[in-house]
């Protein structure tokens, strides 16, 4: 309990300092919001344009796939606000040895490394993503149970995304220049932004079991459309638990590997 209180108080400071930092670059603030909105529009419009010419993609109609895209955008928004900045800092921090100070602090290093930079400006977009999510949720006729579980599922999906992305980033410890890993990470994100049924069987299996990026969106949304499919929720939670422990193990190995750039 005390540990949680400690971490929360640290996190409050992270948010405060991030706001203070963001406030000194006002134009950046606006550009970041704009960037996300442009991304949301292009993602939604693309799907909408395709449905002008076909009635179904796989088992889903337009409203259902639009809702799926919105769901992924809501997850992406959390990712944008809470995590995204930190990934880019990590490769520099490893290369320059700035990670040294992080390792000295009496707080878990994953926490400092990945939660230090809170993207203040992107918080405002929560209205955009949730308005979209609710709009398409209404069109897709969600049940009451689905509406209630929706916020929790967005958060769970985000947690799985976070765990998997941090695992990918851990590979930066083995590389002299880890910047490229961020692009790998972003590519896997792209793959996860489409429902799993569009992929070939083997690929779908690999990305559901071995490295479950397709579970992030497809599992919870399938449950939201049909509440009888609760095994999807089990899959999501199971993946979170298993990969959480794998991540801790991997991180430990990575830190032992850390050389710290000399001087």
């Amino acid at each position: 309990m005390n540990t949680i209180k400690h971490y929360l108080s640290v996190y409050r400071k992270f948010i405060e300092t991030s706001f203070a930092e963001a406030a000194s670059f006002r134009l950046n603030f606006v550009l970041l919001i704009l960037m996300d909105i442009v991304f949301y529009i292009s993602a939604l419009a693309t799907v909408s344009f395709i449905y002008d010419h076909v009635s179904m993609i796989g088992p889903w109609n337009k409203a259902q796939l639009m809702f799926f895209v919105s769901f992924m955008l809501a997850v992406d928004h959390l990712h944008m606000v809470i995590l995204s900045e930190s990934f880019w800092m990590l490769s520099t921090d490893i290369r320059t040895g700035n990670l040294d100070y992080t390792l000295l602090k009496p707080v878990h290093s994953i926490f400092i490394v990945f939660f230090r930079y809170f993207r203040a400006s992107s918080t405002l977009n929560i209205f955009v993503t949730w308005a979209t999510l609710i709009y398409f949720g209404l069109q897709a006729n969600l049940t009451t149970l689905s509406w209630i579980s929706l916020p929790f599922l967005v958060i769970l999906a985000f947690i799985l995304l976070a765990i998997l992305e941090i695992m990918i980033s851990t590979s930066m410890f083995w590389l002299t220049e880890g910047l490229g890993i961020n692009f790998l990470r972003m590519q896997l994100q792209q793959v996860s932004r489409w429902p799993d049924y569009i992929y070939q069987r083997t690929i779908k299996k690999v990305f559901t079991i071995a490295f479950p990026i397709l579970v992030i969106g497809s599992a919870p949304v399938r449950f939201l459309y049909d509440n009888k499919l609760y095994e999807n929720i089990l899959l999501l939670i199971g993946a979170i638990i298993i990969f959480y422990f794998l991540l801790l193990k991997l991180w430990d190995i990575a830190l032992r590997r850390y050389d710290s750039a000399s001087s």
């Binding site: 670059f25 950046n28 960037m35 442009v38």
Partner: peptide, 14 residues
């Protein structure tokens, strides 16, 4: 601008 990568991302998306 302190950072310009957002401009490039916007350009890329658009």
């Amino acid at each position: 601008l302190e950072e310009t990568w957002m401009l490039r991302v916007i350009l890329q998306i658009v």
